[in-house]
Amino acid sequence: MLAIRCEGLTKLYRDVVALDRLDLVVKERSVFGFLGPNGAGKTTTIKLLVGLSTPLLGRAWIAGQEVSPEAIELRNKIGYLPEVPTFYNWMSGREFLFFTGELYHLSKEEIENRCNELLELVELKEAAKRKIGSYSRGMRQRLGIAQALINRPEIIFLDEPCSALDPIGRRDVLDLIKRLSTDATVFMSTHILSDVERVCDSVAVIDRGKLVTTSSIEELRRKYAHSVFELEFEEEPSPLIAMFQGMKWLTKFEQVELDGSPALYLWVTDINTAKKELPSIVAASGLTLLRYELTLPSLEDIFVQLVNGEDKI
């Protein structure tokens, strides 16, 4: 079953297209990474999905129910962490969690238990009675995560969940997100690609309001990852370049200089054929090879490639 479905979601802010006919599906019990550079439309999409904003065109469904600002019952199934979580500074962390539990109509006993669990989980137990006004950015972020989980939501929207966290806090939150996916669907927006690689099952890349691609991480690598060979020589590699004519497995090459030595970057599609044929071609060229290395592109390389429009679907 699908946890989230969008059809042609379009949003305009005056004459700026914030979201352009977004179609998206997210499977149940998965961690879905919503990737894009700043201003791509990630927050706009999340606000539309949680009913804080209305689209100009298009529709969206959460757990089979259509999203709208009036669909109040639907929000019982949702948890939401905004990009910059804000609170009532006069409340303590515990009071805010309690208040959130009341908004979800939980019983007093249930709220008490959930508050204790969540404060422990986000390591705010000691600061629970302190006013939120005195919390650091990281503590606010952790409280934001706790309030998003108070109702044991089916679908959790996290807008840049790790943005204000230190490396240890980031690791803990990512571990938590991974654990949550056993019972819930996590939709997280981010531009931190290492976080996506670590926890997400599938991703969508968005740029300037348009969906660039959506697939599983593995599929993304398979589809867009072109392996790169780095070859370093003692002399100019012109004889070798001449021999590349007609090599179908070679997408492109680039001649560069590395620490004063001439070098070649070769982008290949068929890695196995390239592995077999490239050493013999280099040997036949008569060049002195100093270094031969095969590098696999990171998600970051794929992201840059997609956002720069080099390989849109």
Partner: peptide, 15 residues
Amino acid sequence: YKGTAAMVLSKPVSR
């Protein structure tokens, strides 16, 4: 302006 309205109204609360 502060964003607390968004925080509250993302819960099952009517405007």
